[in-house]
Computed example of a mutant assay.
Amino acid sequence: MRSLSQTTDWNEEEVKVLMKSTYYSQRKDINKGTDMKTLTEEWPFLFQESGMEVHFKDLTGIPLKETFLNSIDRKGSRLLNFMKNVCATKNKRVLQTVTKLQVLRGQTNGCSEDVKDMILLLLSYFDEKEELLLHYVEETSLAKDVELENLPVTPCIIVCGPSCYAAVRFMLSVDRQIANDDITTFITAVCLMFGSYYCFNIHYPSELASVLEFLQRCFFVINPEKGTKVAEKKNKKRVPVNPRVFTLISDLSDHEWRETL
């Protein structure tokens, strides 16, 4: 696989078979705490869409991108409608973001644009730190140009452009290492970012806990009855479901029920 990754004509199905057959060895390296730089060298396809898809499904039983896209089709427009027409009337930061997105988005349409809106509105709604999720660099930046010390330790999407809407491409950073420097769509970037938390045993940072758990439960359909991926804080009681996430899910369901009356 290391040799294949150096070529430009590798076969995706062959990579999937190789990834599946070496899953045990991948988990062994990850679970013993192998550093991210070594993992990117030893298992380069683990950070590519096709390779992570295989690993994530073997690990969780869930097809990563397929589940996300299906959820976007069923829930995406309803969430955006609720955010723009209900939350914006009650939350000043959400209203400011809605106004800003109308300018940034312009006349562009499509699923990927909706996902960008959704992520930025969720960050506003939960008042969480965008800079831990999205790191902006110059449009022409290469991996070697990114100042690694300015990146968060947790998985991060590097946006090559002035905004998500004007980006020419995206990169994935994990543990301040550029794990993938050529991601062509924002949807793929989101899936790789989210998948990294599970594949590499990483806790959600408390500053992004609500956004990530909302994505986890509503769009990646991972709903454990107990336990949480949020980094534990001393003297703070753990709860099975983030109450802020539960409130948004409940308010959204209530709004949809009212709409059908």
Rank of each mutant, 00 (worst) to 15 (best):
S3A: 11
T7P: 00
D9H: 13
E12Q: 10
K16I: 02
K28M: 09
G33T: 08
D35A: 06
K37P: 00
L39P: 09
E42R: 11
W43E: 00
P44I: 11
P44Q: 09
Q48R: 15
H55I: 15
D58M: 11
I62N: 10
I62F: 10
G76P: 07
L79I: 07
N85K: 14
C87P: 00
T89H: 09
T89W: 02
K92S: 10
R93M: 07
L95E: 06
V98Q: 03
V98G: 04
Q102E: 15
L104N: 09
G106M: 13
N109D: 06
C111Y: 04
C111V: 12
D114E: 14
M118T: 14
I119Q: 02
L122P: 03
S124E: 10
S124K: 02
E128V: 09
E139Y: 13
T140R: 14
L142S: 11
A143G: 09
K144L: 03
V146G: 01
L151T: 05
T154C: 10
C156S: 04
I157F: 09
V168H: 08
S173A: 15
I178T: 04
C191Y: 01
Y197H: 05
C199I: 08
C199R: 00
L208Q: 07
A209L: 02
Q216N: 04
I222H: 10
N223G: 00
G227L: 06
N235I: 02
K236V: 15
N242F: 05
V245P: 03
L248R: 01
D251S: 12
R258A: 05
E259D: 12
E259M: 11
E259K: 13
T260P: 00
